[in-house]
Design a protein around this nucleic acid. Structure first.
Length: 604
RNA sequence: GGUCCUGUGGAGCAGUUGGAGUGCUCGCCGCCCUGUCAAGGCGGAGGUCGCGGGUUCAAGUCCCGUCAGGACCGCCA
């Protein structure tokens, strides 16, 4: 080793020791006759003192990579720096080796300066020399270890699955890879290891996990990248409660060790329908109240057309209260209309309650009857001085989600959200199916909310076809502070049930065989009941580090356009690459699952 | 595909009603400086105001387009 000690590990007890440190010049203070250099390595920072014996120190510049040998000394009286763990000591340099020089920096390596995202990503390796970004990656490493510790304690087996594979049934766009050896054919990068982990259950591995890289070709968000990581888990011979208990154990260990927070056990559970009713979201933020109020019955009979139209068509009118919202200016209240329109709503009706008299005012108030206005505050749970926002739609969920978004915005604007709080819950009993609008000749159909291998609940197993819009699944999401950090389900392991699900989804036996024949075939050989969960590992690490984007916990993230400013990927290819890659080749035969002919789904 | 915000020496920002590339902090270069710790002092270099077009006597500033980054909707568990 070039160094004998880590700079950040030095303490007063080390005084008198001769050490060799190696690291970077974080900062220098050149006084002419004496030069102080903050030497930074992976462990921290220590002050090195250069005097006339080491004149080369004058030439040091920021981020030069150096090795220094010298004696650790207690700092002179009054010169301690209580800000630094190493602030009681300094190293008196006897010799200096410049291991490599640094060009002038394109961005400051300085914890006090926040550079723009593009320049940080372009020079991510310099960004990572800063304490914050470095700590984020180190925390992620610890999170990985904690998860592995918990899972290995339960005899889980870490297994890698292919990334050059077939399309998986998650429903997003695939990234495709051309195959040179079979021109005209393509691998898909996995959107998750879903099918492989189920095959591993058929294979008797019983308990599988993997920190799996997943790929989805959809637009980025602060919490979405085209490639991301899941902690993927699957278990055999279990029910929902078993999977959720394990999930809680993992989350509990993470937050205990990395956030110093003890989560309640068991975590609260809320059904998917209740989450929408109360919070207007399938990933409710429980850090504050302001729950939605269903006013459909209360306002029945109103002549206000916006509400009456929704009610008469069997829809929903609801409200959310903004505490103190009556104090908003007309401009602010108009701003809510723009806010609502920006998310595709026609507007956001509101009533403000006079802070003194409680009288309801605002454009909507004129349209409501005296009786409806008189009881409105009580019905909505509002006080004088509050504002009440309404949403009405013939689709219950549409109106509720608008109110849910308004609720979050209220929480932010009125600072009702405690930034230090951790509020977890499970959202259970998700619907199995969601209606899809008919395309062309096809009428309306159904699509799987989770994926087509998700098991109906026992209650619905025999009759989900009778009311697909109401059928419930053994599917569960774990939510933290309004972020979905994981989700899973119990899978279908019976061929007859799987066939009925495909029938409802409009997937023909031929199509099922083409896409998933290998899985269906596997399920003819005694598949165990099984289920699992996958955590959005980037999001988990983002929350644990307090970052507001998963980019902060990814070593080399991409920009919103899928561009990597560091490597310049993606790039065009040469004509030769194109020819070799087989992109333009014609496949010899239509790609089929190997078992397509043998295993049209039938009773297992 | 859509909406919004941002783009000004290497970094982060300010730039008023349209009136000279003006300013601040840091960095960079040179000189000085023996106890600093986001050291200090003096001097200096460094600019296609993202790019293109338009309005105007005059554009960093107003308008249109475009590119890049960010946030969001659609999309995506």
């Amino acid at each position: 080793m070039i160094r004998s000690r880590d700079a950040g590990s030095l303490r007063a007890a080390d005084a008198g020791a001769t050490v060799t440190l190696a690291g970077w010049v974080a900062r220098r203070r050149d006084h002419g006759g004496v030069i102080f250099v903050d030497l930074r390595d992976g462990s921290g920072v220590a002050q090195v003192v250069f005097r006339e014996e080491v004149p080369a120190a004058h030439a040091l510049r920021n981020e030069f990579c150096v090795a220094v040998t010298g004696e650790v000394r207690r700092r002179p009286e009054g010169n301690d720096n209580p800000e630094l763990p190493t602030g009681q000591i300094e190293v008196i340099a006897a010799s200096l080796t410049v291991l490599s020089e640094s060009a002038p920096l394109p961005l400051p390596v300085d914890d006090h300066v926040e550079a723009g995202d593009d320049i940080r990503l372009r020079y991510r390796y310099l960004d990572l020399r800063r304490a914050g970004p470095a700590a984020a990656l180190r925390l992620r490493s610890q999170a990985n270890q904690i998860a592995r510790r918990v899972l290995h304690a339960h005899d889980f087996v870490e297994i890698e699955t292919p990334t050059l594979t077939r399309s998986t049934p998650e429903g997003a766009r695939d990234f495709l890879v051309p195959v040179r050896l079979q021109p005209g054919t393509w691998y898909a990068l996995p959107q998750s290891p879903q099918l492989f982990k189920q095959l591993l259950m058929v294979g008797g591995m019983e308990r599988y996990y993997q920190l799996a890289r997943c790929y989805r070709d959809e637009d980025s968000r602060a919490d979405r990248q085209p490639e991301f990581t899941q902690l993927d888990v699957e278990m055999s011979f279990v029910g929902e409660d078993d999977v959720m208990a394990l999930g809680e154990e993992i989350v509990g260990a993470l937050w205990r060790d990395l956030a110093g927070h003890e989560i309640p056990s068991p975590l609260p559970r809320i059904t998917w329908h209740e989450a929408l009713e109360r919070y207007g979201s399938d990933k409710p933020d429980l850090r504050f109240g302001c729950e939605l109020v269903d006013l459909t019955d209360y306002l029945r009979g109103t002549t206000f057309r916006v509400f009456a139209g929704a009610i008469e068509s069997g829809g929903y009118v609801g409200a959310v209260v903004m505490p103190g919202g009556a104090a908003q200016s007309r401009k602010e209240l108009d701003g809510w209309q723009d806010w609502a329109k920006a998310r595709g709503a026609r507007g956001l009706a509101y009533v403000v309650l006079d802070a003194e008299t409680g009288e309801a005012r605002g454009p909507v108030a004129k349209n409501l009857s005296a009786e409806h206005l008189a009881g409105l505050a009580d019905a909505a749970g509002a006080k004088p001085g509050d504002a009440i926002f309404f949403a009405a739609d013939e689709e219950r969920r549409t109106a509720q989600e608008l109110l849910g978004a308004a609720r979050l915005e209220i929480g932010r604007r009125t600072k009702l959200i405690d930034p230090d709080a951790w509020m977890f819950c499970w959202v259970t009993d998700a619907p199995m199916f969601e209606k899809v609008e008919g395309v062309g000749a096809q009428g309306d159909g159904w699509t799987a909310v989770h994926h087509p291998f998700t098991s109906p609940t026992a209650e619905w197993a025999d009759r989900f076809e009778t009311a697909p819009d109401q059928a419930l699944a053994y599917a569960y999401d774990i939510v933290c502070n309004g972020n979905e950090i994981g989700g899973g389900s119990i899978r279908i392991h019976r061929g007859d049930v799987q066939k009925r699900v495909f029938d409802l989804l409009g997937i023909s036996p031929q199509e099922a065989a083409d896409k998933f024949g290998f899985l269906l075939e596997a399920f003819t050989f005694g598949p165990p009941p099984h289920g699992g969960i996958a955590f959005g590992w980037d999001r988990v690490c983002m929350l644990l580090t307090g970052a507001d984007s998963i980019r902060e916990v990814i070593a080399f993230p991409k920009t919103g356009g899928g561009y990597d400013p560091l490597t310049g990927a993606p790039t065009p290819i040469t004509g030769q690459q194109r020819a070799e890659a087989g992109i333009d080749g014609k496949p010899k035969q239509a790609a089929q699952a190997p078992s397509a002919a043998a295993s049209a789904p039938g009773p297992a």
